[in-house]
Each structure stands twice: as structure tokens, then as C-alpha cells.
Amino acid sequence: MMKEIIEVSNVYKDFDGKRALDDLSFSIQTGETFGFLGPSGSGKTTTIKLLTAQEGYQSGSIQVFGKPAEDLKNPKQMKRIGVLTDNTGLYERLTVNANLKLFCKLYGVSYKRIGEVLDEVGLKGEESKVVSKLSKGMRQRVTLARTILHKPELLFLDEPTSALDPVSTERIHRILRTLNEEGTTVFLTTHDMYEAERICDRVAFLNKGTIQLQGPPRELRVRHSDSSITLLLKDGREQLVGNDHAGAERIQEVIAHQQLASVHSNEPTLGDIFARVTGKELL
């Protein structure tokens, strides 16, 4: 049976008198990949900071592993999580190997694990490269390798593919899916709705520090679908039909006349839903 690994209840957070998080409540089940979607400044990074005990909050409650988030300051608890922040945080003058060796020592992990994680992130053979010589995508993968070095149960990823090229992004998505299949719970923030649709079991839309909507991506799309269907005809024209008896008859007719090129259900993207719910674009 799935149990809650993170439970956030009615959390308020202010910065210099300005409200950053407003009555935030959500929970994450063990083994889930949960995406926090929102535009820049919506409170995504602040939420990660609260969940990982980097920041305090005004009121409410945050439980991680069934204990107050503050307990993560205890090194034993800290070993159960991995945090990838919004920039690399690597020692640029040192090699990939030296960077990872430091964290092997800090976490009490064998150096053998370096080869394993570099293999997982597709960087085997790059151990001796100096970090400053690596591309942005490779650095991000080294950071991810460092984050999963100690096999954390719970991963916090703040915009893990922000500003990466599509190949690096795809590779990181693949790694995250594999980690999740192996049982790691993933909490990630993103403003990339495509990323959220591809890898998240559930998402929450955050706007101005408040969760506007949450649920599985497919369910949200169906819930916000207008039920219309677009027919693309062979002559290049598009026709919109309803998801009803009349629509079915029209589709049958087009097929009978061999005019049909393709059929598309008009489910909105998560970006469309976000814009509809908040009146804002996910940028």
C-alpha cells in the first residue's frame, strides 16, 4: 500500500512581509513522480527549500518521511534525500571524479558507486574531465549523478532540465523514469508542461504561492477537454465535430468518401489548462 512520503498542510511563507506561499496543501505518495508547475516567481523553489528544511515558514505543517521537515537537518535523515538545485553547484576546477569522490566520502559510499552512477547518467569514461570543460547538459548530468550517488529514497529536483538542449533533456527524463521505476520518489519543479506530461504521475499548478489545481496529467486534460474532435481532411481542410451522435455520423461520412487524413481529440495541453485556470502563460 502506498503511503505519504510528503505531507504539506496549510503552509504560509512570507518574505519581507510579502506572501510567497499561501495556504499550501498537498501530499505525495511513496514511489510517485510529482510535478510542481508554475511560472517563474510562483513559489516553486521556495517550496523545495521548505521541504528540504533550508527555510522556515510562518505557519502550517510539513512532514517528510512522517516527521517534521526540520528533522532533515539530522545527517541520518539527510542521507535519505537527494537535492538537485537550479544551478550546477559543482567544483569547476576539479575533475568529475574528484567532485564525486568528495560526496562518496560525505555519504560514506564506496568509490565503486562512481562508475555505476556515471554509467546511469551516460557519462562513463568522462571521470577525468575537469568540470569547467563540460557542456551545460553534461554538468547537469554530473550533478544528477552526485545527487543519486547515495541512492536516496526521495529526490527533489528544481528545474532539472532548465535551459538544456532537447537531447540532454530527453536523457535526464529517461534517467528520472528509471529511478522512479526502481522505487525513488521524485518531486520536481518545472515550468515545462511537456516535461510534466511526460514524466509526472501527478502535477500541481502553482500560481502566486497558491495551488490552483492538482491531479494526474491525463485526468486533468480529460477534465478540461471541450469534447470536440478535429478531422483533418485529405484536401488540407480541418473540420471540428462534436463528441456525440452527429459527430460520429460526420466522421463515418468522411471515411466513406475517403476524405479523412487524420482524427484528433481536442484535449488541452497542461499549458493550455494552466493558462485557462490562472490566466497566465507557463513561462
Binding site: P75, M78, V83, T85, N87, G89, L90, Y91, F103, L106
Partner: peptide, 14 residues
């Protein structure tokens, strides 16, 4: 400056 202190603070180091 390089945001590496955060990495240390989020490790088991006390």
C-alpha cells in the same frame, strides 16, 4: 558564489 556551499549543507555534514 558557485552555489556549492548549498551542496555541502544538503549533505550529511553538520
Amino acid at each position: 558564489e558557485k552555489n556549492t556551499l548549498r551542496g555541502l549543507l544538503l549533505s550529511p555534514l553538520n
